[in-house]
Amino acid sequence: MAKEEKPLKKVCIICAKGSIEDVYATLVMANGAVMEGIEAKVFFTFFGLDAITKKQFKKLKTATVGNPAMRMPGGLPFPSLLGVLPGVEAGVSAMMKSQMEKLDIPPVDEFLDMIVAGGGEIYACRLAADMFKLEMKDFTEHVKGILTIGEFYELAGGDNTQIIFT
């Protein structure tokens, strides 16, 4: 790969959804950034807050209903009606997690540890926190603060910065 003349310096990643794949997309990108020496600021909002909420981060799920890309192991179609059965969503989610563990992708809290260890910063959205009645004490220790979107944009200044919405 040829060297980029103006390499990326900072990514600001916004995660507004709380399913396993949305949260992990955010975590992989944030961790991948710090591992490349790129500054990373992550802003969790709306349902994305589950990823940094003490009571919720271990319970993330993949949607088995309304997910057209969902397939059975082996590739057969996954009937939506099956997805509504009790335990199916939990089973599918457990499988997603075990597949990721095999690739050495850590659980959410450990992933956040890794990002913070690399200098990445984790923030919660003020509006969504107010809406869901969440405060700093409800969030994992990785969370540096609760910010308004304006404050988040202040962190997003500077050359070669990208904002990514997952």
Binding site: N31, M35, D104, P106, E110, D113, M114, A117, G118, G119
Partner: peptide, 19 residues
């Protein structure tokens, strides 16, 4: 396949230390 997590669990250095 090497990952930063594997190094962090090696007992040699934690991830912060690796950074």
């Amino acid at each position: 396949t090497l990952t930063i997590r594997k190094v962090g669990k090696s007992g040699i250095v934690d991830i912060k230390g690796l950074y």
